[in-house]
């Protein structure tokens, strides 16, 4: 008979899952289990043990994750509803929040050190030339510079995409997404969850921008929206820095 040796535990594992065996093999094992009490007992124990490996309880989600996920969908839905890029109410509200949180995070100081490499002006859209890594050294000023460089470089790269290939756009969007997550992670790990949330709120735009089925109008609208957001962030950072040194001369 051309079926696996019933005594083989591996065969019993496959029998337990009813997977990886032919119908003939399954029937053969069933017959063997009926007439071989020792094998039936071994299978009963195996099945009991595997049944015992039931799905563990759900893990509590990190604080704020559910809200962020809901915001992500809400924002993605709003993005789709917008025919043209414009400074709508939610955008203003978000930008205000972004500015406030960036400023707050910088004022409080996030215990982050980063190093910044590269800069705008190079042609290929392979990666966003800003790299941030956690460091044991405390350096909110470096974090500010890193964020600023990231926003500025991204804006420059976006501008350079005009008339470019869709693959370049997807590549840039993906690189920005990864970089954005890195900054968000650094912010969250260092006590600036609101800044992390704001950075994360870029993701629906970036994800949309990375799609390959967009019309030229859609791309233009998303680009304009993202450039606007980046410009707002840069403005707020500049104001935040200015206010740090001239507390009474600028309004956040």
């Amino acid at each position: 008979m051309n079926h696996p040796t019933p005594a083989n535990e591996e065969t019993l594992v496959l029998y337990y899952y009813k997977d990886g065996l032919s119908a003939a093999e399954l029937r053969a094992i069933e017959r063997e289990l009926e007439r071989n009490p020792e094998l039936a007992e071994r299978y009963r124990r195996l099945a009991l043990e595997l049944d015992g490996l039931a799905e563990p309880a759900d893990v509590p989600m990190p604080e704020g994750l559910e809200y962020r996920l809901q915001s992500t969908i809400a924002r993605a839905a709003r993005l789709e509803q917008q025919d043209q890029p414009k400074a709508t109410g939610w955008l203003h509200r978000w930008s205000f929040l972004a500015g406030a949180t960036v400023t707050a995070a910088l004022a409080l100081g996030v215990g982050i050190g980063i190093w910044v490499a590269g800069g705008p002006g190079h042609a290929p859209v392979e990666t966003v030339p800003v790299v941030a890594q956690p460091s044991p050294q405390w350096s909110p000023a470096a974090f500010e510079r890193g964020l600023e460089t990231y926003f500025r470089t991204s804006r420059s790269e976006l501008a350079g995409l005009e008339g470019g290939e869709g693959s370049d756009r997807a590549s840039l969007a993906n690189a920005m997404l990864q970089q954005n997550r890195l900054f968000a992670q650094l912010a969250r790990q260092n006590g600036a969850p609101e800044l992390a949330r704001v950075l994360r709120s870029f993701e629906p735009i970036l994800a949309q921008l990375g799609r390959d089925d967009l019309s030229d109008e859609d791309v233009a609208a998303l680009r304009a929206q993202l450039e606007f957001e980046l410009s707002v962030m840069l403005t707020k950072i500049a104001r935040g820095s200015s206010q740090d040194t001239k507390p009474n001369t600028q309004e956040i």
């Binding site: 563990p56 759900d58 893990v59 509590p60 989600m61 994750l65 559910e66 996920l69 809901q70 969908i73 809400a74 839905a77």
Partner: peptide, 22 residues
């Protein structure tokens, strides 16, 4: 719809997260 997505998130996000974590 968006509402259905939001409802699913409220009900099941923890399970999805757990699966991803495993």
């Amino acid at each position: 719809s968006e509402a259905e997505f939001q409802q699913a998130i409220a009900q099941r996000a923890s399970r999805w997260y757990s699966a991803c974590l495993r």
